[in-house]
């Protein structure tokens, strides 16, 4: 079945996107990434440690940009200006690669997005030729505004970053999917496999997660579980589920030919 995820005109087989943070080491990062089947990976942009040995392992050796689609993020940015500067540096770092993840945070305790700064940054970045996949709240009005600006994917949170609380508001996600025509990828708050499956069953185009895998006791096994969960949820969505009914007035077995009861 040809059911590719298409983002900014490029198609991907995997609907699971993963972060590369919080792992024990690069080996675990790569092993988990391989188990997840993800093709798109997020990375952060940080100051180089000038005192560092030049021969120290680095992420790009273990997770080559030639084999994976990199999605540089703006984690830690609280203003549109900082996010824009970060992504301009990222684009130069990655030889003109322009597919990016925009996130502008509102406060360090909740890591909730500041959607006003996010919108401002999105405008500047889209005008500067970036293909912006934008992390946002589950506000459907903001989501449509971000699409109108020209973002190539809308990435609403399921719950707070790193919280593992799962999908708190499936109705808002549904409102977003009803109104937005670019891919909707749930990003933030997924905790375990069922969360990912539920997101896909709702009709989301993909799921992005980091802590759910890296923070599991067995990240490689969880990565594999997530791969299966995203596939199962997607198939269930495409299969068209049975309706939910409060009273099931339709048994699965025939009603004719039941033996006579010996009850009085």
């Amino acid at each position: 079945m040809n059911d590719k995820l298409i983002i900014a005109g490029k198609s991907y087989s995997s609907r699971l996107l993963v972060g590369t943070g919080k792992y024990k080491d690069f080996t675990e990062t790569r092993t988990a990434l391989d188990a997840s089947g993800a093709e798109i990976v997020t990375v952060a942009i940080r100051r180089v440690n000038l005192g560092q040995n030049a021969n120290e392992p680095n992420l790009l050796d273990t997770v080559p940009p030639s084999q994976f689609t990199y999605l540089p993020n703006t984690a830690g940015c609280y203003t549109a200006d900082d996010a824009v500067r970060t992504l301009r540096l990222a684009r130069e770092l990655l030889d003109g690669h322009s597919l990016v993840k925009l996130e502008v945070l509102g406060d360090p305790q909740s890591l909730y997005p500041n959607v006003i700064e996010t919108i401002a940054a999105a405008r500047t970045l889209v005008a500067d030729g970036f293909q912006v996949m934008v992390y946002t709240s589950d506000d459907p009005i903001i989501a449509t505004q971000l699409e109108d600006i020209g973002c190539v994917a809308i990435m609403p949170l399921a719950s707070l970053i790193g919280s593992g609380m799962g999908i708190l508001n499936p109705w808002n996600l549904q409102l977003i999917m009803d109104r937005v025509s670019v891919p909707v990828i749930v990003d933030a708050g997924v905790g375990t496999a069922s969360d990912a499956a539920i997101a896909m069953e709702l009709g989301c185009d993909g799921v992005l997660m980091n802590t759910a895998i890296a923070g599991a006791q067995n990240p490689v096994l969880m990565a594999s579980a997530m791969k299966q969960a995203v596939e199962a949820g997607r198939s269930a969505f495409l299969a068209g589920r049975m309706p939910k009914k409060l009273y099931s007035a339709s048994p699965s077995s025939p009603t004719a030919g039941i033996i006579a009861s010996t009850r009085n």
């Binding site: 972060g19 590369t20 990062t29 990375v43 940080r46 180089v48 680095n58 540089p72 770092l93």
Partner: peptide, 8 residues
């Protein structure tokens, strides 16, 4: 001066 590092 920046590099790419692991992140979510």
């Amino acid at each position: 001066i920046v590099v790419a590092v692991g992140g979510g």
